[in-house]
Amino acid sequence: MKDLTFGPFAAVGKATEDILASLGKFGEFFIEILRSLRDVSTWSPLLVQQMRRLGVDSIPISLFLAMFTGVVLALQASYTFTGQIPLYFVGTLVGKTMMLELGPVLTGLALSGRVGANIAAQLGTMRVSEQIDALETLAYNPVAYLVVPRVLAGVLMFPVIVIFANALGISAGLVTAVNLLDMSTQDFIRGLRLFYAPFDITFSLIKTTSFGLVITVIGSFMGFTTRGGAEGVGSSTTRAVVISSMLILVLDAFWAVVLLQ
């Protein structure tokens, strides 16, 4: 009777305790990352390598996504306008949407799968195989050695990736509009410039930087907290992708509220 009466409350309390504990652990982990930034000699030799692996090697998938996004945006814009709105607004819609929303968000979601999962799997495997423990035993700062280069690589390289993605997406929209929508290049560029503001690019870079930070930090945290062998690695990888994707969308709304109002 007692269990039936207080069971739900106990479950909510347990879940709250777990969430707060996880947030606490995540807070400690994030603070440890910030502290480890001072250990430059440990993370700096690995930074370029991580930038290559997490950034440069992710460019193809980002460009692939951006190209088809630009094509679809141009076609959907012309389909939506249906003659009531001048076609040069296709350029406006493609440019604004790529820079403000789809470029950063789609790239972030793609990289949360590729980069976040990669980091979580790598660090999770190192955790379950006790390699991280070995580093600690050897007096290495595992966060500075394993996490900081990945986080910095994500923060630095994600905006670069999104710049390429935006450029290719807009270019793909231009090519699509000119070849499939009976628009001239001048019309598309006119629409592209019509509502352009320099802050558009700044906004895109701010969002992408935050996405890079979230993806790498969440992936690293999930990998560092992996338990239970290979199954735990898989679980951590999955949770890293899911949570990163959710946080990307949350941050997307957050920045829109903070910076666009």
């Binding site: 370029v48 390598q49 930038m51 630095l156 905006p159 990736i161 710049i163 935006n166």
Partner: peptide, 23 residues
């Protein structure tokens, strides 16, 4: 890695500046 990353970063920076100016 340094060369590749450097080229990508420089290209990204140039693309940003030139794109913003052109737009």
């Amino acid at each position: 890695n340094e060369i590749v990353v450097g080229m990508v970063v420089v290209l990204g920076a140039v693309l940003t500046v030139v794109g913003a100016f052109w737009l």
